[in-house]
Simulated scan of single mutants.
Amino acid sequence: MLTNGFVLASAWTPGDAIYQLITILILLALLKKFAWGPLLNVMKQREDHIANEIDAAEKSRLEANKFLEEQRKLLKEARHEAQALIENAKKQGEVQREDIISASRAEGERMIESAKLQIEQQKEQAVAAIREQVASLSVLIASKVIEKELSIEDQEKLINDYIQEAVEKR
């Protein structure tokens, strides 16, 4: 039968069905060997690669966490060391301050003692100088008295003159 230039098969036969079944089976075998197998291999490789990447990422995350904990521990230790250094520096500063205060007090006391000694020496020198002046004035007065017999008024005038002279010499 011919319809519009096509031949229509009107009869279906069991041989055709077997032929089509064999063709489909061959096609499936070829697909399995050349398409399905390589496709499954590629998918398996991709799955393995993704699993390896996940494992590597997990290892990296664990290492990063370990490193972070180590850094935190080191930072904590560094803070403790810094605090200890600060405390030590404060203690040393306090000791130095006390040493400086003690040294200053000792130096002040030494200076006071030295000044007292100098004052005492100058006082003794002044007393010695006054004794010398009194002695020389006494000798001078005595020599003047011996030279002339004086009245009480003359003696007072003479003493006042010598005292005035002694004051002026100073």
Rank of each mutant, 00 (worst) to 15 (best):
N4C: 00
G5V: 07
A9Y: 11
A11G: 07
G15E: 14
I18V: 09
T23L: 06
L25C: 11
L27K: 04
A29Q: 07
W36K: 10
P38Q: 06
L39V: 01
V42W: 07
M43R: 06
M43Y: 08
R46H: 11
D48F: 10
I50N: 13
D55V: 00
A56G: 01
E63T: 09
A64C: 10
N65C: 04
K66C: 08
F67T: 11
L68D: 14
E69W: 09
E70V: 06
Q71T: 04
Q71E: 12
L74K: 10
L75H: 08
A78K: 02
A78R: 02
H80W: 04
E81C: 02
E87F: 10
V95A: 00
V95R: 00
S102F: 04
S104A: 13
A106P: 01
E107K: 14
E109K: 07
A115R: 06
K116Y: 05
Q118M: 08
E120A: 13
Q121N: 10
Q121W: 06
A129Y: 07
R131V: 00
E132S: 11
Q133T: 01
A135P: 00
K144F: 08
V145I: 12
L150M: 15
E156Y: 07
K157E: 15
D161W: 03
I163C: 01
Q164H: 01
K169N: 12
